[in-house]
Each structure stands twice: as C-alpha cells, then as structure tokens.
Design a protein around this nucleic acid. Structure first.
Lengths: 120, 120
DNA sequence: ATTTTATAGATGTAAGTTGCATATAGCGCA
DNA sequence: TGCGCTATATGCAACTTACATCTATAAAAT
C-alpha cells in the first residue's frame, strides 16, 4: 500500500480558488486540511505543482517582497486555471464513481469469504 | 490530467476474490468492468501486479497446460491475500472520504466564481 | 551575541505506477 | 500460408511522489 496518488494538482487548484492570491507555503498548510490519504501533501510536491501549473498557463505568479521574512511567490488562477478546475471536478466525479464500485466489490467479496469461513 | 493511479492492485485482488482461481488474461477482461478512470486497465499492468502480489505472498500461481492455446498461469488468493484485500477496503474508504471533500470544494469554488461573473 | 525556530522557496535523487510498443508462442481457420 | 485470438512477458519513457538537503530572511529564545 502506501503509494497512492495524492492529487496534488486539484488540491493546489482548489486552494488557490478558495484563497485567491496565495503562495506555496500557505497552500501547504491549507492542503493539510484537504489532504487525500491522511498524510499531508509534501511541500516539495506543492512547489513543483505550482511551477507546472504556471508553465501550462493555469496560474500567474509575482514576487511579493513587501512583508518581513523571505520573499513570497504569489500565485493567482487564470481563466484557463478556472476551466482546468472545472475539468478536474468532472474527472474526480468519474473517478469517485469507479472507486466506489471497486470498494463495494471489495466489501462484498470479503463478506462472502467471511461467511463461508464462519464455521470454525 | 490523464495521469491518475489506476488502482491495479485492488482491482486485481477483487477480481481474484470474485472469480476464484483465474489467470491474467481473464482478469484483464474482468477489470474492464471495474476499471477506474473510464480507460481499461493495461494488460501489462495486470501481469506485473500479479507477479508483485505473488512476491509479497498474497497469491499463489500454478501453470495450467491442459486446455488448448497457450499455457495459463493460474492465480489464487492466499489468506494473506484476503487480509490484504480487507486492508485495501479500509484504505479505499479513507481515500474516498478525502476525495469527496476535495470534489465538494471544487464544486463550491467553481459555483462561487460563476456567480460572481454572472453579470456579463 | 549566539543559537534556535518559523517562514519561504527550490532542487537532487530514488522509488513506484502506468501506457505504449514489442516479443514470444499456441492454436483455429480461411 | 497467413491471419487473428489467446496468453504471458519485458523494455522504455513519462509522471508523481517522498525524503533529504540547501538557501535565505527574520523573530524569538538562550
């Protein structure tokens, strides 16, 4: 087990959608709430995902050097980014439907197996 | 998009649970029903998953050369395999719960964005 | 004054899953 | 003979991820 997709891309997209203009470090914290598979999303994965999303035109970034502490790279969703989020919603819906079916069959198979071995 | 985990392992396990003793080629056909993400599971992935499961002790295999055509490698779940399937059911349940949350937030965010841009 | 902690971003490397292409071989059929 | 279905297997590239590590700023603690 232990090697599932963490869905970094939709989690980052939805964090940007909710927070408006934000930066990676904050998304990393926001992502812990949404994280798939109990384990939080790795910060490195988030930074890489943001770069990839920018290369694809789904987000724009600017440096913010106003506040104290190290500079932040602020990201905003583009219209293409919003469209991409919509696509993800559909993909996730299909994915959930299929996964639910797999889980159901798992449960059924295990139940049947347990019943057949109930007699000591 | 397009690069999601296909969950070959639980799909193969549940196919074995349902079919009893089977072989890869048949699982490949069974898996098309259960397949996650609309696209059928690649046959290569199934053969590799079966080997991996055997190395881990979750299945046993024997050659079947009785019938016509090429020999089949028959697989059966071990008790450890059944236990592994139970583990998968729990993992999938957690996974589904988290993914549902992500999807819900996607929908909410998109809806809000659409409403704010409803005025031409 | 120095060290630690929190903030913030980035990269290198290895591991794991997958898709596609390809190779093999047996067998039935035209 | 060649074609197609059955059946298993491997090579390779692509992608995502985890973990470790690195840089740097600034505040808090020692």
């Amino acid at each position: 087990m232990g090697n599932l997709y963490r869905f970094a891309e939709p989690i980052v997209l939805v964090s940007l959608a909710r927070l408006g203009t934000t930066y990676g470090y904050q998304i990393a914290q926001e992502a812990e709430r949404l994280a798939v598979t109990h384990a939080g999303l790795d910060a490195a994965a988030i930074y890489r995902t943001l770069r990839r999303l920018e290369d694809a035109g789904y987000v724009n970034s600017t440096w913010d050097t106003r506040g104290p502490g190290p500079a932040r790279r602020d990201y905003v969703l583009t219209e293409a980014g919003w469209a991409h989020l919509r696509e993800w919603a559909e993909v996730l819906e299909d994915f959930l439907k299929s996964l639910r079916a797999v889980l159901e069959q798992c449960r059924e198979a295990v139940k049947k197996h347990d019943e057949e071995h109930a007699d000591q």
